[in-house]
Design a protein around this nucleic acid. Structure first.
Lengths: 153, 153
DNA sequence: TATTGTTATACTCTATAACTATA
DNA sequence: TATAGTTATAGAGTATAACAATA
């Protein structure tokens, strides 16, 4: 497992702002942990899936581009890429114009795994949303936008 | 780093429900990742801090209780506990009535580290919240409650 | 000479299996 | 015999340093 800091203690003397901040932080960790548990292939780590997702969203990458995007060292990414290649999820092809580079892209099988994982993760959230009131769903939809803004600031 | 699945691809033909689910999932991962980066002591892992937080919230534990709570094997938890003990954050004391057991609890120093870490994590959220409109803050406060409900269902 | 990818090596976190002490 | 904790060992993920091939 990767991260389980979802029971963080509250600050001692929480005035309103700090209480709100703690609540949001704890709720975020707890939900993230729950969502992360919904993986299509339990033997694939978050880091491995993140590479497949990056290739899906942003297309083919070189090794260095993947390492930069995932903020990981080149040797570490090389190892992950080798594992994904051996599992048949991605392909490595030498670059024609600059032969130091290799192009890394999804295989059809890798694409299928990504779809399956996304569908399963979304299925959990969709079912949960379906049990809420329309007002609650609206609140979460607005909150999602604000959360991204906060995370990216 | 632990988890970086914050760029998950959207489902192919997102109708409204599935789009809302994807947005919430992505926003949650992204914010969790950002918050996780705010650690007081960069050499302490999430797993180690989670143990300190559990002891703060729920009091002293035996090794097995900690392993169960964090959903980790006993040997793995034993290793984490040994590291935390060597760092001076926790104490191990043999149980008087059942001498197979050991009681694990925070030291004063460990308590201080928890407070510091919580304060730093909350500081980031508080600063971010301060830049929002009152309506946005209200939305996030309501969302936090709903998110916990979704995570715990 | 600089850049891209890879290999060598080492450290952390995780697990299962085996062991010790106690119930 | 069963249980709680620990030790032994191994695999995955991470990093830095050193190397090979290419620009």
């Amino acid at each position: 497992m990767n991260n389980r800091v979802d029971e963080s203690p509250l600050p001692d003397q929480g005035h309103d702002d700090s209480a709100a901040a703690s609540e949001l932080r704890m709720a975020t960790f707890r939900l993230a942990r729950r969502l992360r548990a919904q993986r299509a292939i339990d033997t694939m780590s978050d880091g491995q899936f993140a590479v497949l997702a990056a290739l899906t969203v942003h297309g083919a990458h070189t090794l260095g581009q993947l390492a930069d995007r995932e903020r990981v060292s080149a040797p570490s990414m090389n190892r992950t890429v080798t594992l994904l290649e051996n599992a048949g999820y991605i392909s490595r092809t030498p670059d024609e114009t600059d032969r130091r580079r290799v192009t890394i892209d999804l295989t059809d099988y890798g694409r299928r795994i990504v779809d399956e994982t996304v569908r399963r993760r979304d299925a959990f959230v969709e079912e949960a949303l379906a049990e809420l009131t329309p007002e609650e769903r609206e609140t979460l939809a607005r909150a999602a936008t604000i959360m991204r803004k906060v995370a990216d600031r």
